[in-house]
Design a protein around this nucleic acid. Structure first.
Length: 1000
RNA sequence: GGUCCGAUGGUGGAACUGGUAUACACGCAGCACUUAAAAUGCUGUGCCGCAAGGCAUGUGGGUUCGAUUCCCACUCGGACCACCA
């Protein structure tokens, strides 16, 4: 009842505001007319809207479930940015309603959380009291906007009747081993005095309060979301109506990597053996491992005092690492540090090399096995560490290229040979000698430049080969060998001048020209290429072969960590295999030898599900000395949050609930013996994991009243789900949207929901920024309150503006001037009603220009709302209204169609005008207009005429003009003749319905 | 550093699978109504040029009869992730 009342008054008081009355008065209309316009339906039509926003669970109509991410009812109330998403779903809901769908569009409150609890701490009031107040404010604000929410289906996560089912799902997980107790060190926020999940961190800081988070080992409940990692990842591909950005973010967050574990044996100075297992995604580089690194938390250093020679040093390092905050540990500017663990060595299983073991905090305890094999040649972090501590770097992967300009011919055999590339420098002027290849030899590449290069002959060393090639190809006689560049490159290509496929194993040597003494270059060389001296800075540009940049880069900057795929070298039985094949082969070998196996690793961690705070769902478990952890019997649910005097968390890792002895001490539901309740509560994200199901569990049918408020009615749940359209902020990509997908998949597995994914289509709302381009915040004093906007311009103008301001999913700065614009538009629509002349209606069957525009508008608005391109839908409506304004009178049918198209955006004004036209039922009970394609089709179109790609003329032609006719008409035009200057057109391109392009 | 996205008038933005760049709105200017102002209506509004015309979609190249749209390189901005082996 209440909201119907608001609705009717909304139409009068808000959309048709005092401002409007003022206009009427100014126009000196008789007072009675003003009164009529303003109050008439309040007196007599109060009931025409009743019931249309009540959702029915049984209907012959197809269902449409449109959902908003429900808000946390904060004390600050809504600002103008919050309702953007709600307005958008409301537009869709209203259109779908008119299109004959049974629409569910509900709203609720995600009300557990720290702000309410902190408020309670400060003011000594129960969090539920403040929450209730805030909800009232929110509801009032939303009510002003004329949203279609069915408030009979309002949910609240803090309602015991609601969290009963949150607890129920937890118990199901517990029973299936998906919830387990853990003592791992976790993120601890000293300010909020609670443990946090990985998802609750922002750059190593607490997402709530911004405090520095520390690692603290403590007892906690953890949900095994990693069991679902593979399915959560794979099913992303099924979500074809989700934005790709969100899908990418989820993929990255789950972070699947495929690799292997490798067991290194560890041997102490005294000959004692143990093992060290590492995880690597590059088992193919095993021959290149030059040391191992373990995380400071690694068990190898615990209880090993006797074996580790420098135990004090190691212990000291580990202690320091523990003291570091997460922020310090992940600071990338920081240099890597570490300490060698002396007295023990790791044995590389593949070649029995003894490798030193380091402890360093660049290896994370919580990922993989907490230990790595370091391959500095092919990993940037290991490379950095190895450089710093002077550890050996052994290359085992060579970059591999296939020259795209001259790929090998598949019908020819390939000659493989060791090749030398020679960088020759003249010390006098610093120039570099390149070979310039003759164009007739390399027609596919007219300006080919290479280094001096050639094959290494049997028994030749690099220096000898380099000097020999340099002499032969350049004629200079005296060179000094400077160095070999530390890189081997493999390149495959086709030599045009020799007609062969080549596979070159390239070694790189630097020579210096000693003097200018020079012989004539042999004819055989000179017919292919000529040597040219090039300024050093021009080399990168000139050296235009596929392997040029990497070779020159290695020469200039020295060796770098080559982390890409390539070809394995220096690795015995793996030699000459490309990286993927090498991986397969080494994994097979490891498994055969029993020293390793294939392993898939995820970045996603298990979900730390305990909070040491008061305002959350109690975890429904009891601990019995005899039976261990036992779940609360389902019949006793909900396990209600007890009243407490002091909300202050102890900070010791116990929740405030621990102090309530009466509540804590209970009896074991299994053996009847004494037992203690779990005192941790659930995290804020728990309640939002299934709320979209709760809306479907609430429906109140006449005469059917269940004792339970929420009833797990599978029929109803399966009728409405999955959600057809889900709208909310992108910031939930890796939190709520992963948790909810996990929770839903679990519910699917236990057979209580029918589909595997909860949200069919997801749409992100772009943030509304303040007029100054910053985020709206009390801090900047730039918050705009929707209530003020509604008072000043009316709810419809505000709704319309938020939908018009830009693409829906993009951030956009607020502009109150923009609201003035949409307000003006609505007034134009209002005054158009004066021009409606129903007597003339339908008397003529002639198709008018307005018919065409109107039906084009129907098509565009329908498609645009469906695709959530509201800004262009509204601009089309504006075009239509501008056209209608030019007419002296309007047909009733035309004007009615306009109102129907406008209704989802501006429900108050449209409803009112609809009534003024003499309709007795709500505009939202009318049927959404259908586009008549025959009417939408234009009789003529503007043909553009281009000459040499430039627009020169446009002419209006009949829509069904033929190609020949069009060409003839165009060529006959004197303006066009002028451009052609008597020249014969080379080509005439005709694009139907668009243009003619003449090439002269 | 990685991944993704974006860059169009004074401003927010439009342009379907390559086909008339700047729709729609804001702002600005002029005119009408008014004693005046506001409101409203009409007209104009990318840049250079008297004009014919030329130049313009971050910068530089390429493909094409034709590129805001496709390809390559770069610059700037935003979002997310960030020592994940």
């Amino acid at each position: 009842m209440a909201e119907e009342h608001i609705f009717v008054r909304g139409a009068r008081n808000k959309a048709v505001s005092c401002f409007f009355i003022y206009t009427l008065v100014k126009l000196r209309l008789p007072i009675k007319v003003i009164f009529d316009i303003y109050f008439y339906d309040l007196l007599s039509h109060k009931n025409i809207y009743s019931g249309i926003y009540k959702t029915k669970d049984n209907s012959d109509k197809p269902k449409y479930y449109v959902l908003d991410m429900f808000p946390y009812p904060s004390g600050a109330g809504l600002h103008v940015g919050h309702p953007k998403g709600y307005i958008a779903t409301d537009v869709v809901a209203r259109m779908k309603m008119m299109q004959g769908y049974n629409v569910l569009h509900p709203m609720g409150w995600d009300a557990f959380g720290l702000p309410a609890e902190n408020y309670a701490l400060k003011n000594k009031v129960h969090p539920s009291v403040a929450t209730e107040e805030n909800i009232k404010t929110f509801k009032k604000q939303l009510g002003l906007l004329g949203l279609t929410y069915d408030w009979d289906r309002e949910v609240n996560t803090t309602d015991p009747e609601y969290y009963k089912w949150t607890q129920w799902a937890f118990i199901q997980m517990f029973k299936r081993g998906l919830a387990f107790e853990s003592y791992e060190p976790i993120n601890w926020c000293p300010e909020c005095k609670t443990g946090l999940a990985n998802e609750d961190l922002e750059n190593g800081l607490c997402e709530r309060c911004g405090s520095v988070v520390v690692q603290k080992p403590m007892r906690q409940w953890v949900l095994k979301i990693t069991d679902y990692a593979e399915r959560l990842l794979n099913d992303i591909d099924k979500l074809d109506k989700w934005p790709t950005s969100i899908k990418e973010m989820q993929k990255n967050w789950i972070g699947k990597s495929e690799g292997a574990t490798v067991k290194f044996s560890v041997i102490s100075n005294e000959g004692e053996k143990s093992a060290l297992e590492v995880f690597t995604t590059r088992p193919d580089t095993l021959f290149g491992a030059t040391y191992c690194v373990i995380a400071p938390e690694h068990e190898l250093i615990m209880n090993q005092e006797s074996r580790i020679k420098n135990y004090d040093e190691v212990k000291n390092y580990v202690e320091n690492a523990k003291k570091k905050t997460t922020l310090e540990r992940t600071d990338l500017q920081k240099e890597k540090t570490g300490v060698e663990v002396k007295g023990i060595k790791a044995i590389n299983p593949v070649n029995n090399e003894e490798l030193p073991i380091f402890v360093a905090d660049y290896v994370l305890g919580g990922y993989g096995t907490g230990a790595i094999m370091a391959v500095p040649a092919h990993d940037e972090r290991d490379f950095e560490f190895a450089k710093k501590y002077n550890l050996p770097i052994k290359r085992v992967v060579a970059p591999h290229f296939v020259d795209p300009a001259n790929p090998p011919h598949s019908d020819l055999p390939t000659t493989r040979r060791k090749t030398i590339h020679v960088i020759i420098r003249n010390p006098k002027d610093g120039k570099v000698l390149l070979l310039n290849w003759f164009t007739n030899l390399t027609p596919s590449r007219p300006h080919l430049h290479t280094l001096v290069l050639g094959g290494i002959e049997e028994g030749e060393n690099l220096a000898v080969a380099a000097i020999r090639e340099a002499q032969e190809e350049t004629g200079y006689k005296n060179f000094k060998f400077l160095k070999e560049v530390d890189l081997e490159v493999h390149t495959e290509y086709y030599t045009e001048h020799k007609g062969q496929n080549r596979y070159a194993e390239i070694h790189i040597v630097e020579l210096e020209l000693e003097d200018e003494e020079r012989e004539k270059i042999p004819e055989s060389e000179l017919k292919n290429h000529e040597p040219v001296w090039v300024e050093e800075k021009e080399v990168p540009e000139k050296l235009n072969v596929i392997d040029g940049p990497i070779i020159w880069g290695a020469y200039k900057n020295g060796y770098f960590a080559f982390t890409e795929d390539g070809v394995t070298v220096n690795s015995e039985f793996l030699n000459n295999l490309k990286t993927p094949e090498a991986k397969t082969k080494i994994i097979a070998w490891l498994e055969e030898q029993g020293v390793g196996k294939r392993k898939v690793q995820y970045k996603l961690r298990d979900w730390v599900f305990s909070r040491q705070r008061y305002w959350g769902e109690p975890i429904p478990l009891v601990n019995c000395g005899k039976c261990g952890w036992v779940s609360v019997p389902e019949l006793e649910l909900p396990l209600k949050l007890p009243e407490v005097k002091n909300y202050e968390p102890s900070g010791t890792g116990e929740s405030p609930l621990a102090n309530i002895e009466k509540w804590v001490n209970t009896i074991c539901p299994v053996c009847g013996g004494p037992a203690k309740r779990e005192t941790n509560t659930m995290p804020q994200w728990a309640g939002s994991c299934w709320y979209y199901l709760a809306y479907c569990m609430l429906g109140k049918e006449k005469g059917v009243r269940s004792k339970e408020k929420y009833k797990w009615d599978k029929e109803k749940i399966n009728y409405w789900n999955p959600v057809d359209l889900y709208v909310g902020g992108a910031e939930h990509a890796t939190r709520h949207l992963i948790y909810a997908r996990f929770w839903h998949k679990f519910l699917f597995d236990i057979g209580v929901v029918a589909n595997e994914e909860p949200f069919t289509r997801l749409q992100n709302v772009g943030l509304i920024l303040a007029e100054d381009g910053r985020k709206m915040s009390k801090r900047w004093n730039n918050v705009i309150n929707p209530n003020d906007m509604v008072d000043q311009f009316g709810a419809d103008a505000m709704r319309l503006y938020e939908m018009f301001m830009g693409p829906f999913d993009q951030p956009c700065a607020w502009s109150t001037n923009g609201v003035v614009g949409t307000r003006r538009f609505l007034e134009k629509v209002w005054w158009l009603s004066e021009k409606v002349n129903d007597l003339e209606d339908n008397k003529t069957n002639e198709k008018t220009k307005l018919d065409t525009l109107l039906h084009q508008t129907i098509k565009k608005v329908t498609e645009d709302i469906e695709a959530m391109r509201y800004n262009t839908a509204i601009s089309q409506l504006m075009i239509l209204v501008n056209e209608m304004s030019k007419e002296n009178q309007l047909f009733l049918t035309h004007y009615s169609l306009l109102l129907q198209l406008l209704a989802p955006f501006a429900p108050h004004v449209s409803e009112e005008l609809w009534y003024e036209l003499g309709n007795n039922e709500s505009i939202f009970e009318s049927v959404w207009p259908q586009c008549d394609n025959a009417l939408a089709k234009s009789e003529t179109f503007t043909l553009a005429i281009q000459i040499n790609g430039k627009l020169r003329e446009t002419i209006e032609v009949s829509a069904d003009i033929s190609e020949e006719e069009a060409k003839a008409q165009v060529l006959a035009l004197p303006q066009i003749q002028k451009w052609l200057e008597d020249k014969e057109p080379k080509k005439i391109i005709y694009v139907k319905g668009k243009l003619i392009s003449i090439v002269v």
